[in-house]
Simulated scan of single mutants.
Amino acid sequence: MLVGGAITQVTVEAMAKGQAERLMPLLQDVMTTAGLSFDDLDAVAVGVGPGNFTGIRIAVSAARGLALGLGKPAIGVSTLEAQALGYPRPCRAVADARRGMVYAQDFGGGDLSPRLDAADAVGDDHPVAGPVPAETLVTRIAQIAADRLASGAELARPAPLYIRGADAAPASDPPPVILP
């Protein structure tokens, strides 16, 4: 939680599944511990990926729903941008995409679009901002979102940043028959 420009609380719970069921109670716990209500928020920040496909969808949906219900802005921040915060420019943010691939994005010149690269093709033409602990990532997302809010610029609704398709395959069972 970012209050008055300072991080006052960071809560991270690693979990393989159950994120959708745990997210809102976790947010309520954070607010209660801080002695605040959701109405006290100025905005809702959310990491939009790239990352775990389902986790990103859950996070973005929850942030947008909470912000809509509160009448506050929701601010999406790329996890690659958060990794690169504080690195001298130019730099390249890199995150594991599994199966010998990485998500990569260059900051400070050239094509700034995130992309999927082979892990052995990252290159050394820029300093690399690699993975950071979850607590650091959350803190940086909050800082970037606060800067965007303070800038007064128009804020687009957050949307998941998908660089490749989901690993899940379509169901192989035939669809149900709809009766008249």
Results as ranks from 00 to 15, higher is better:
149 L>Y: 06
132 V>Q: 09
110 G>M: 12
140 R>D: 04
156 A>E: 09
108 G>Q: 04
115 R>S: 13
128 V>F: 11
116 L>M: 15
99 R>T: 10
105 Q>K: 13
139 T>L: 08
106 D>L: 06
137 L>W: 01
103 Y>N: 02
129 A>G: 05
103 Y>V: 08
141 I>M: 00
149 L>I: 05
134 A>L: 10
123 G>M: 11
108 G>M: 06
155 L>V: 12
156 A>C: 06
114 P>C: 03
118 A>K: 14
118 A>C: 10
108 G>E: 05
91 C>K: 08
145 A>F: 03
119 A>H: 05
111 D>T: 04
122 V>K: 03
134 A>Y: 05
142 A>V: 04
130 G>N: 12
140 R>N: 11
140 R>H: 14
123 G>S: 12
158 P>E: 02
92 R>N: 01
97 A>Q: 03
140 R>Y: 05
151 S>A: 06
145 A>R: 02
158 P>F: 00
91 C>S: 12
150 A>I: 08
145 A>C: 09
130 G>W: 13
143 Q>V: 04
118 A>L: 15
114 P>T: 03
142 A>T: 03
105 Q>W: 01
134 A>G: 09
96 D>M: 07
107 F>P: 00
115 R>G: 07
158 P>T: 02
122 V>N: 03
135 E>R: 15
125 D>R: 09
89 R>T: 10
126 H>Y: 08
152 G>T: 08
